[in-house]
Amino acid sequence: MKSLMPLNLLTLVCPTYKRESYLKRSVEFWARQPFEIIYMDGSPEASDIDFSGFANVAYFHNPRFIVERLETAAGLISTPYACMVGDDEYFVPSALQDCIDFLQVHPSHASCMGRALGFDRKSDQLVFNTAYPRLKGLKLTDDSPMQRLAIHWAQYVPAHCYSVTRTPVWKRAINLSLVRQYNVFSIEEIQLETVICAAGKSEVLPILYWLRSDEAPPTRNTGDPYLDPSKSFAAWWRNPATSSQKNDFLESLAGACGSDVDCKELEIVFDVYVASYSREPGSMAWLRSIKPRVVGKLKRVFSRLIPTLAEDPLQLLRKQGVYIDDEGLKKCFDSIKQSWQA
């Protein structure tokens, strides 16, 4: 087991599974950045990559469920801040530093991040698409944890699980996911988002932060129940046969969030979330929530097939006042294109 020698204030944690080409690209990029990164590989076989020459990179072949791998990684982090990153995705390095700087002077905030840009490959060209537009201007800064949770889950967007987060909070959220495991798709995301949101204020800064990859389908159906979309949170939540599990989920989650989070109020928060986002038949909330998703999907299709007919999402971010580190962005783009030529 390779010991970690802190180079900076932040440790990135990257779970990966049977995606050697993306893992190689990710390692070559992050090895040049002033941050620690831990790769937790759940693949049946260990990677063939030689990690020995990278001072800031730690690789662990750990063929277990994703929450177990993340818990192992949490025990290795010694930096003040932690963040999860996808093996096929990028964060603009200067944006990570901006988030650290922001948290250093905002002690009441548990986490922060910036805006996202989707990218894909069309022949040998990068094409962009809009990613998570609801991140725009998002500020969960109410003094009440319960109020922050109500706002967040009523208009859900992943604003915490890929954010720069204070390490004690990140570890608490990860440890809860391991201690309380349920046979439900992506429930660890819900636990992470809830614990971090309750732990302190959070904010999306007007900077380009996250490059969200559409090059390959997400990792699914590996035998890990957390990665099986057929085991939906909504079906589990509504099923009378799982009511005792649901009560345990709410009690443990409220306990991890602290005394200011009420179990019964938290149940109402998730009732609203499920009704609004789970395609509940006959629900007007579902019709309202699906509309922006359909529009967003159509825009992505047009941007890929007929780029000239759709507004460039990168330029749209600039028009919205989002700061873009062009030099840092170019390094990300160069890394992506070089991987295509390998």
Rank of each mutant, 00 (worst) to 15 (best):
Leu205Tyr: 01
Ala198Val: 04
Asp262Met: 08
Glu203Ala: 10
Val184Tyr: 09
Ser232Arg: 09
Gln104Val: 02
Ala254Asp: 02
Tyr182Gln: 11
Tyr323Arg: 15
Ser108Ile: 07
Phe102Met: 12
Trp286Asn: 06
Cys332Arg: 01
Ser283Asp: 05
Gly86Arg: 05
Pro6Leu: 04
Val274Pro: 02
Pro133Thr: 02
Met146Ser: 13
Ile37His: 01
Tyr156Ser: 06
Gln341Ala: 13
Phe333Gly: 00
Glu36Gly: 11
Lys136Gln: 12
Cys83Gln: 13
Leu149Pro: 00
Leu314Ala: 11
Ala31Ser: 15
Leu298Phe: 12
Glu193Phe: 00
Leu192Phe: 12
Asn62Ile: 02
Arg180Pro: 09
Thr219Arg: 05
Ile37Asp: 04
Leu329Lys: 01
Trp210Asp: 10
Glu193Pro: 01
Glu280Asn: 11
Val274Arg: 04
Leu309Tyr: 06
Phe91Leu: 10
Thr79Cys: 06
Val157Ala: 12
Asn56Lys: 08
Asp98Ser: 14
Ser339Tyr: 02
Ala150Met: 07
Val27Arg: 00
Trp210Ser: 03
Ser111Ala: 15
Tyr323Gly: 12
His152Val: 02
Ala73Arg: 04
Ser177Glu: 09
Ala198Asn: 03
Glu203Ile: 07
Pro313Asn: 10
Leu208Ser: 11
Leu266Glu: 08
Asp334Glu: 15
Thr167Gly: 02
Ala198Trp: 04
Met284His: 10
Lys201Phe: 08
Ala131Ile: 01
Pro107His: 09
Pro313Gly: 08
Thr222Glu: 07
Asp41Asn: 07
Lys24Gly: 07
Thr141Trp: 07
Ala46Tyr: 03
Thr219Pro: 01
Lys297Leu: 14
Thr222Val: 09
Ser186Thr: 15
Phe333Lys: 09
Gly321Cys: 05
Glu36Asp: 14
Ala235Ser: 14
Ala73Phe: 06
His109Trp: 12
Ser52Pro: 04
Arg288Ser: 14
Thr194Lys: 10
Pro292Lys: 09
Gly296Pro: 02
Gln315Ala: 14
Asp41Gln: 06
